[in-house]
Simulated assay, not measured.
Amino acid sequence: MKLRYTETDCTNPFINLATEEYMTFRAAEGEVTMYLWQNANTVVIGKNQNPWRECRVESMREGDCKLARRISGGEAVYHDLGNLNFTFIAREDEYDIPKQTEVILEAVRLLGINAEKTGRNDLTIDGMKFSGHAYYQSNGYCYHHGTIMFNVDPTPLGEYLNVSASKLKSKGVKSVRSRITNLINHKPDVTLEELKKALYDAFAKVYGGEVERFDIPTAESDPELKALIDKYSSEEWRFGRKIPFTTSISERLDWGGVDVELQVEGGVIKDCGIFSDSLETEVFGVLKEKLIGCKYSKSAMATLVESALPYAPNSKEYQICCDIINLIAEGIM
């Protein structure tokens, strides 16, 4: 197995997220890449989230805080230069989430801090979160990325993020700030360079091999990367398309929160928006296509579950679709 490592001093989220996707779809068989990067004063939302619900957009504009959208699922996160982002990139055969997670845990241990994994995608110290993770897979190309908070300013979390009471309740905490911690709180003299070195050493240790460093491509050298940067910085990608909805549904379920907006005309669903912080990604777009043009009736929703869903009945995607369709059906008079 070939181990590759790169980092960037660029702090522009649109360039960094574009570079992440660019490298993901160029991953070679038999190699694993670790990419380290930082964003300055940025809120990054999951692929299927509604920025107007998740963020205080006007406050972000006043504070010169950028809004970015990634292609992975999950919840909105705040990035500043007290946070280090990591991405593991690999083809499906080499993609190993537990092993990749162990690299982060081992790096923190090398700094002298005891950390553990809790839940599906959080790493904690003394029960407080310092690292959240999200995942992406498409046609055998995969990435696993996340944050490592070593000295994040917690103030903007309350200024820029809207976190529902139901989400906090599901995690058993009173506020976002009460459930996070910085590495500096447990090792006051930790530096960014020490953290990067610990990650490099942990990568080599956990995978048991030599790590080759390489340089990141630039937009000037590759028009395909330039096109991705244009996508990530566009208003259409970041904010999405608003629809004149007539029905709105919000609920928090065991797989995450969901907001559904429906434009119903003449008893038919003419348009639809589905927003979620679920770690699943593609299922929401698939369901949206099935709903548009469907009759807005309980019998039509039942038929959709019985015959039109393209997922196996025991799959997570099928459960998500059924849950959302049932929510819609419950609201039909």
Score class of each variant (00 low, 15 high):
Met1Gly: 14
Thr6Asp: 11
Glu7Ser: 15
Thr8Pro: 05
Cys10Thr: 08
Thr11Tyr: 01
Pro13Gly: 02
Ile15Tyr: 10
Ala18Gln: 05
Tyr22Met: 10
Tyr22Ser: 08
Met23Tyr: 10
Arg26His: 13
Glu29Arg: 14
Glu31Lys: 07
Val32Lys: 14
Val44Asn: 03
Ile45Arg: 02
Gly46Asn: 09
Asn48Ile: 06
Gln49Gly: 01
Glu58Asp: 06
Cys65Ala: 06
Lys66Thr: 11
Lys66Leu: 14
Leu67Ser: 00
Leu67Met: 02
Arg69Cys: 11
Ile71Leu: 11
Ser72Val: 03
Asp80Glu: 11
Phe86His: 08
Phe88Val: 08
Glu94Lys: 05
Gln100Tyr: 02
Glu102Leu: 13
Ala107Glu: 03
Leu111Asn: 13
Met128Asp: 13
Tyr135Thr: 06
Ser138Ile: 05
Cys142Phe: 00
His145Cys: 03
Ile148Phe: 10
Ile148Lys: 12
Val152Cys: 12
Pro156Phe: 04
Glu159His: 03
Val163Glu: 03
Val163Arg: 06
Ser164Gly: 06
Lys169Val: 01
Lys171Pro: 12
Arg177Cys: 05
Arg179Ser: 02
Thr191Ala: 04
Leu195Asp: 08
Lys196Tyr: 08
Lys197Cys: 12
Gly209Phe: 13
Glu210His: 07
Val211His: 14
Glu212Asn: 14
Ile216Met: 15
Pro217Ser: 06
Pro217Trp: 04
Thr218Glu: 10
Thr218Tyr: 03
Thr218Asn: 05
Ala219Ile: 15
Glu220Gln: 11
Glu220Asn: 11
Asp222Arg: 07
Ala227Asn: 07
Ala227Lys: 10
Leu228Phe: 02
Ile229Asn: 00
Ile229Gly: 00
Gly240Thr: 02
Gly240His: 01
Lys242Leu: 10
Pro244Ile: 04
Ser248Lys: 15
Leu262Glu: 05
Val264Tyr: 04
Gly267Leu: 08
Gly267His: 06
Cys272Phe: 09
Gly273Thr: 13
Ser276Gly: 04
Asp277Glu: 10
Val283Asp: 00
Val286Gln: 08
Lys290Pro: 07
Leu291Lys: 10
Ile292Tyr: 09
Ala302Phe: 12
Glu317Pro: 08
Ile324Gly: 00
Asn326His: 11
Ala329Glu: 09
Glu330Leu: 14
